[in-house]
Design a protein around this nucleic acid. Structure first.
Lengths: 341, 341
DNA sequence: AGGGAGATTGATATCGTGAACAACCTGCCG
DNA sequence: CGGCAGGTTGTTCACGATATCAATCTCCCT
């Protein structure tokens, strides 16, 4: 009586058909409409059909804000990553979002850049929306933030890293170990001169450290090195190589913190008349498309970023649904020898 | 009295300090706490200080779900793009999200893949969260969805495309025009033989059509062409070129629907002994990093994806704030001649 | 001193839904 | 035929905040 279908009572005209309107139209209680939408098994078929018809006729669209307030479940997950301009993060975010949507959750995306205090602020901000779960990048958090996360009492999954004390769930791998594996790989190929182009990204720094330590462990040293800004790009790889090309030994093995850097380094090396792989062997990280399909294809330390997102979604959903999910998922990495070594 | 700071009444223990708790602690009404947070100008400084202290002491975190229900403003924007695995969309999403966060909004990300019905479903799903605005990709919508969007009564910005009847705001450019510009560019360089590698993406198809039409308008024709799946990749460019390499004229100009395709085509062409640009001139689209920094750098039709996201955010915020924002923002494109032409 | 404008604070009424419990109805069993 | 179990539907209230209007209080001017 109060609200004709097209003349809602709210401020602007529009989709303000509410559950009570549907209920009135179908001749049932609002709660019954809610049940048709959320727990259809608990409604008799004839009633459900009438309700569905009313929903259709009125163009009713449930208000998940109200539902979330009432049920204290937002059906929303917040994801905080430094950037999605790099495949390193766009890949897991893509698969994670896909998987969560499949399960009826939406993903709120927040970008933290590469500053810790910015991430802290983002965490506080998204918690105000009461997400049902949280995806974070990396495993290094301040005690204050850890306490905040614990008191928020929601499942948290941290990706791309590993560490002694995860906040909750962890999906990643040991970066230092991977760096060491690359060093071993080079040594096995008979290399004795090493160089590195490494971004100032917390995890890239761990990989580099693992690489450098293992090189030292073999009694060998770096002949050249350069740090790059994060997130690092093809251009950084090119300028980085340009700066160290004079210091390279006749046969040097170059460790790069990402495939983009590796691709840039390879491109620049050739322009300087340095043959790849004869004079300069290169290993990247990430198995990005460009590394796989350029020529020669770039040897890389591969971790499936998409798989990380998928496993993170699995673990988070399991935890949300009360299952006792694994709290530490180690994803495998492997070195894929290709044309640059 | 009821709720000691650490012992909230809700289900799980945790951040269930609410605005009434803060109010009690500060000796004010809940409404005053709300004002301290939302309209601090309307509270006297001594009172505000007491409230801020109470917030600090109790670790109060506002519940934006409840606030959103009450104020009918979610402070949230939904963004629906086909994928973020391609820089074509990750770039605008990145800048858009950054800009919206700056303005106090969060961005809910939904991935629609390349199916229209999937996008329709996503639109319905996100509208249930009552976003304050919507970012969509492309300008082709069914009448039903357009009606739904209009009835939802929120600002909508469509990016990456242009058309006669935008739903609301539009930030993009004319793809057919761009395709034609590439044809003109090639013709000006004296080319008479053309080829195309084009993804089955709605906008790539428009660009191709513009290219083909303009080629025909010059009285010339394509000697070879291949369609690729969307989203297309470097690999698609390589396999695509492999399939047409036998049909190429001694001097052919190749139109590619993206820089990734162009890079793949260039890589594959060289492996087949086809010189770039002498025997095969190539023009890509998007000005991706790989095109800029590979060697030779790839001639491309450039549109600043990041700028699209930024302009979209501007326009949406203006509309939200009641300003009479422009409803059609045309972003410029330009052909950047580099080493492949 | 009276009074009105403007600043500050409070009380009340929703916002639209789902949880919890109550009521009813049906059918079957003893 | 009474009563109980199980399925179905309804009633009531709380979720946590903000919009709105009312009530003070202050200050200043005539």
């Amino acid at each position: 009586m109060n609200n004709l279908p097209g003349h809602p009572p709210g401020r602007g005209p529009g989709a303000s058909v509410k559950i009570t309107d549907v209920a009135a139209r179908a001749g049932v209680a609002p709660m019954t409409v809610s049940r048709v939408l959320n727990t259809p098994d608990r409604v008799s078929e004839p009633t459900a059909a009438r309700v569905r018809a009313a929903i259709e006729e009125l163009g009713y669209m449930p208000n998940l804000i109200a539902g979330g307030l009432s049920s204290r479940r937002s059906r929303m997950i917040a994801a905080i990553v430094p950037t999605i301009a790099s495949p390193m993060f766009s890949a897991p975010v893509q698969t994670f979002t896909d998987a969560m949507e499949q399960a009826g959750y939406h993903v709120m995306l927040a970008l933290s850049g590469y500053g810790a205090e910015s991430e802290d602020a983002q965490i506080r901000a998204v918690l105000a929306r009461r997400p049902d779960g949280l995806l974070l990048t990396g495993a290094q958090r301040s005690p204050a933030i850890r306490a905040l996360l614990r008191s928020a009492n929601l499942p948290v999954v941290e990706i791309w890293d590993t560490g002694p004390e995860p906040t909750d769930i962890l999906v990643g791998f040991d970066h230092a170990e991977m760096g060491a594996a690359v060093a071993d790989f080079f040594v096995r190929q008979g290399h004795t001169n090493f160089a590195a182009l490494c971004a100032r990204d917390p995890r890239a720094i761990l990989r580099r450290q693992g690489f450098v330590d293992r090189v030292a462990h073999h009694g060998l040293t770096l002949v050249a090195e350069r740090r790059l800004d994060a997130p690092s790009s093809i251009e950084d790889g090119r300028t980085g190589l340009r700066q160290i090309v004079g210091q390279l030994a006749p046969r040097t093995a170059l460790f790069c913190s990402s495939d983009l850097v590796a691709f840039g380094a390879m491109t620049e090396a050739r322009l300087h008349g340095v043959n790849v792989p004869e004079q300069l062997a290169i290993c990247g990280f990430g198995d990005f498309e460009v590394a796989r399909f350029c020529s020669p294809a770039i040897t890389t330390a591969r971790v499936d970023g998409g798989a990380i997102g998928a496993r993170a979604a699995e673990a988070l959903l399991a935890r949300i649904n009360g299952a006792t999910a694994e709290s530490r998922v180690l994803v495998p990495f492997e070195i894929i020898p290709r044309g640059t070594t």
